[in-house]
C-alpha cells in the first residue's frame, strides 16, 4: 500500500479516536462538576484539561477566564484549537476524504456524515440540545465509524493501519484521562461520599462502570480503578489491551525496517503485562503514566519512520 494512503488511514483513525476521548474527558469533568464544590476548585478541574493538552497559551489568546463554559466552547467548537472535537472530526474527515477510494463507501459515508452533522450546529445549539447528549453523540458516531469500518472493510493492510492508529491514540488517551483525574481525586486525600461519584464518573467516562462492577463485585477503590484501566487484559480501553493490540498489528505489518519499533512495543507491553498495581502505586502513578505516554510517543514516531514517511 502507498505510504501516503497508510498515513491518511492511520490519522483518520487517530483523530476519530481522539475526538471520542476528548468527549469522554469533557464528559467526566462535566459530571464531576455537578457534585457541589467551590467555584475555584471546579475551575481548577477545567484548567487541568487545558494543561493536559498544553493548551493554556492558545486558550488565553481567545478567552479571558478559565470557566466551564469557556473551556467547553474551546474544546468542543473552536476551529482554531487543533485539539477541539470540531478540529479532530474535521481532520478525520479530511484524511478519509484523501483516501476515500481505499475505504468502503459505508466507512466514508459514516465519517462524512458525522462531519456534516457536526458542522451544522454551533456551540449554542449544542448547549441548548444538552451537552451530555452531545458527548453521547460523539461517542456514538465514533462507534458507528468503528463498527462500519470493522464490519465492512477487507482485513488487509488498510485495516491494520486503521487499527494501529486507533490503538495508539486510545492507549495514550486512557493514560491521559487516568493521569489527570487520578491526580485530582487523590490529591484531596479524604475519603467521603462524593468520592464515590467522582470515581464512578471516571469509570463511566471510559465505559468501565459496569465492567468494574462485574469484575470486582465490590466498592470502588482508586487502586482497583487504576488496575482496571491499566492492567486488565480484558478491558478494551486498558493500557494492557492497547499495547497488546499494537504488538499484534505491528507483527502483521512488519517490514524490512520495523524491527526496532516492534521491539519498543513488545517491551512496553511486557512491562504492563507483568506489572503489579502495588508496585505502580509505590513508584507513583503520575511517573508511571508519564513514562507510558513517552513510550507511546516513541512508538508513534517509529511507525511514522518505518511505514508512513515519504523518503
Amino acid at each position: 500500500m502507498l505510504s501516503r494512503t497508510a498515513d491518511h488511514l492511520y490519522w483518520m483513525s487517530r483523530y476519530t479516536e481522539r475526538a471520542e476521548n476528548m468527549a469522554r474527558l469533557l464528559d467526566v469533568t462535566y459530571q464531576m462538576s455537578l457534585v457541589p464544590k467551590s467555584v475555584a476548585a471546579e475551575n481548577q478541574n477545567w484548567g487541568a484539561i487545558l494543561a493536559l493538552n498544553s493548551l493554556e497559551e492558545p486558550f488565553a489568546r481567545g478567552y479571558d477566564a478559565v470557566t466551564a463554559e469557556n473551556v467547553l466552547r474551546f474544546m468542543i467548537s473552536d476551529a482554531n484549537n487543533p485539539a477541539s472535537i470540531y478540529s479532530c472530526l474535521r481532520a478525520a474527515r479530511e484524511n478519509a476524504h484523501a483516501v476515500r477510494g481505499t475505504l468502503t463507501s459505508e466507512t466514508w459515508e459514516a465519517c462524512n456524515s458525522t462531519w456534516i452533522e457536526l458542522r451544522s450546529q454551533n456551540f449554542q445549539q449544542i448547549v441548548s440540545g444538552g451537552i451530555e447528549q452531545f458527548f453521547e453523540w460523539v461517542k456514538l458516531r465514533s462507534s458507528v465509524v468503528r463498527g462500519v469500518t470493522f464490519g465492512t472493510m477487507l482485513q488487509d493492510e488498510a485495516l491494520h493501519f486503521i487499527r494501529l492508529g486507533g490503538l495508539i491514540e486510545r492507549g495514550d488517551n486512557t493514560a491521559r484521562i487516568l493521569d489527570v483525574k487520578y491526580h485530582v481525586l487523590r490529591s484531596k486525600g479524604d475519603e467521603n461520599a462524593t468520592d464515590f461519584y467522582q470515581w464512578a464518573a471516571l469509570l463511566r467516562s471510559v465505559s468501565a462502570f459496569e465492567v468494574y462492577r462485574k469484575v470486582y463485585r465490590d466498592i470502588i477503590t482508586p487502586e482497583r480503578v487504576a488496575e482496571l484501566l491499566m492492567l486488565r487484559p480484558d478491558m478494551p480501553r486498558s493500557l494492557h489491551a492497547c499495547t497488546k493490540g499494537i504488538v499484534r498489528v505491528l507483527r502483521a505489518l512488519s517490514n524490512h525496517q520495523s524491527a526496532e519499533t516492534e521491539r519498543l512495543a513488545g517491551m512496553l507491553h511486557a512491562q504492563i503485562h507483568y506489572a503489579r498495581i502495588d508496585d505502580i502505586l509505590r513508584q507513583g502513578m503520575h511517573e508511571v503514566l508519564t513514562e507510558f505516554m513517552n513510550h507511546i510517543f516513541n512508538i508513534g514516531e517509529g511507525i511514522n519512520r518505518d511505514f508512513l514517511a515519504q523518503l
Binding site: 500500500m1 502507498l2 505510504s3 517490514n255 524490512h256 511505514f307 508512513l308 523518503l311
Partner: peptide
C-alpha cells in the same frame, strides 16, 4: 475511478523515478 478499477490513487509525491523507471512508495518499499 481508482477504486472501481482497483488501482492505487497516487499523487506526484507518491512516485519517484530511478534509472528511468517509475516507482511508488509503499509501506513495503
Amino acid at each position: 475511478l481508482a477504486q472501481q478499477m482497483g488501482v492505487e490513487l497516487v499523487e506526484g509525491r507518491d512516485l519517484f523515478v530511478s534509472e528511468d523507471t517509475v516507482y511508488m512508495r509503499t509501506t513495503r518499499g
